[in-house]
């Protein structure tokens, strides 16, 4: 279990300058075996926060406990030892360019014979699924392969925790998917606790069950990923969710006065957002039949986040005003959030 309590980390750009609060009183608990996401725009303090876990950044105040051990009070030697049990991977992979894959993965291995090291490295490379590259240099590998090697290296000493600092941000979407899948597998196979730092909502949606949203050094929202996505409470989170959703395109369409979104008299354009997990009912076609309306779907974006549906549609209702209102009420009764975007009047 990773427990952060009132962690504060300031940076001083200048002696006279006031401190920059990179991490400002953050408390967070991450349970064993969890894949925990920390999301935020760049500069939110995510990277500093994750470095407070393995003390690459020493907090100015606050407590960092891992499995009950207070990290900030460890002696240097104990800290080095503790760090071998906390793997870390990075956006830029950080493989040593003058060493082969084998030598890179062997870097953290100690007190082992040459043969034992070779065997262990092969085991690790098989685990991350690039068994045939042990004599290649990092410069000969693709981004995805480099990250796999970095993961193998981070796992060399059987850590219980893996910290991922924007680990997929330098990769293309397909490779990102593959690396995330690998992380998910490792989480399941090894019971590894994984902390994922990212500015990409996709990543969190894909592999995290729980997440925290960070802004200006503070955690502004934390909880189940599904909840954060379906009903973001903080404006920054809402903003974040919106930027990743297809539904936000409607604003652009309206601004550009696209013919697609020009309403005829009597029509109403609304955004239907699924907040609760149960949207298996055929809501559009049911409402269309029950209230005798034409419902035109302009945009739809429905995704599966931690096993439940998240998303919504933008629709144009066409029909009698009275019936439109009843349909909207029907949706609201079904716990669907309805936001009227434009109303062409009765």
């Amino acid at each position: 279990m990773i427990e952060l309590e009132h962690v504060v980390k300031n940076f001083h750009a200048d002696k006279k300058d006031s401190a920059i609060h990179a991490v400002n009183d953050v408390s967070l608990t991450i349970n064993n075996g969890e894949i925990f996401g920390i999301i935020g725009f760049s500069g939110a303090g995510k990277s500093t926060l994750v470095r407070c876990i393995n003390l690459l950044e020493r907090p100015d105040s606050g407590n960092v406990r891992i499995d009950g051990v207070e990290m900030t009070s460890l002696k240097p030697k104990e800290l080095y030892k503790a760090r071998t049990k906390i793997g870390m991977i990075f956006q830029q992979f950080n493989l040593m360019p003058s060493r082969t894959v084998l030598q890179n993965v062997a870097y953290p291995l100690k007190d082992m014979t040459r043969e034992q090291i070779r065997e262990r490295v092969r085991e690790l490379l098989a685990l991350v699924d690039i068994p045939d590259k042990e004599n290649a240099y990092p410069s000969e590998l693709s981004g995805g392969q480099k990250q796999r090697v970095a993961i193998a290296r981070a796992l060399a000493n059987d850590p219980t925790i893996l910290l991922c600092d924007e680990a997929t941000s330098a990769l293309d979407p397909q490779t990102t998917g593959a690396i995330l899948q690998l992380l998910k597998d490792l989480n399941r196979k090894l019971g590894l606790t994984i902390v994922v730092i990212t500015h990409e909502m996709e990543v969190v949606k894909n592999i995290c069950r729980k997440a925290a949203v960070m802004d200006a050094g503070k955690i502004i929202e934390t909880g189940d990923v599904f909840e954060i996505f379906s009903s973001p409470k903080h404006p920054v989170t809402r903003n974040f969710v919106r930027t990743t959703s297809n539904l936000s395109k409607i604003e652009t369409l309206i601004r550009d006065d696209s013919p697609l979104v020009r309403l005829k008299p009597g029509e109403v354009m609304a955004r239907l957002v699924y907040v609760y997990a149960d949207v298996s009912e055929p809501l559009i076609s049911y409402a269309s039949r029950a209230f005798d309306l034409e419902i035109n779907i302009i945009l739809a974006d429905v995704e599966i986040v931690s096993g439940a549906m998240v998303g919504g549609t933008v629709v144009i209702f066409n029909g009698e005003r009275e019936r439109i209102n009843r349909a909207i009420q029907y949706y609201r009764d079904k716990n669907i959030r309805v936001e009227v975007i434009q109303d062409a009047g009765a």
């Binding site: 393995n54 690459l56 240097p76 030697k77 080095y80 030892k81 503790a82 760090r83 071998t84 906390i86 793997g87 870390m88 990075f90 830029q92 950080n94 493989l95 040593m96 870097y107 953290p108 970095a150 290296r153 981070a154 060399a156 000493n157 910290l163």
Partner: peptide, 22 residues
């Protein structure tokens, strides 16, 4: 690359090790 130093530290290297091995 500063990242290499950071990676080495994250793997439990002491400063002396970082000097020689990185």
């Amino acid at each position: 690359d500063k990242g290499l130093v950071e990676a080495a530290l994250s793997m439990g290297s002491s400063p002396t090790e970082v000097i020689f091995r990185v």
